[in-house]
């Protein structure tokens, strides 16, 4: 009986741990590319890329590099 109780507790802890480990962010963009079509030289083009975190953990934007 005691052994079974400990076994169940350990199993619960493991599951809880797995749940925490499983909290993962998931980045999801509305769109990952844009085409402005024909523009006149000298114009400054601007676009907002919208995204959502569809995961269960916090999403961290670590670095942005433009080229």
């Amino acid at each position: 009986m005691k052994v079974r109780l400990i076994g169940a507790t350990v199993l619960m802890l493991l599951l809880a741990g797995a749940e925490v480990l499983h909290a993962q962010p998931l980045i999801s963009f509305e769109s990952e590319s844009v085409d402005f079509g024909d523009v006149r030289q000298g114009e400054v083009l601007e676009h907002d890329f919208l995204f959502r975190n569809d995961g269960t953990g916090t999403l961290v934007i670590e670095k942005l590099t433009a080229s």
Partner: peptide, 9 residues
């Protein structure tokens, strides 16, 4: 960005 939250770049 928390779960289900949105952001923009």
């Amino acid at each position: 960005i928390g779960p289900n939250e949105t952001g923009r770049i």
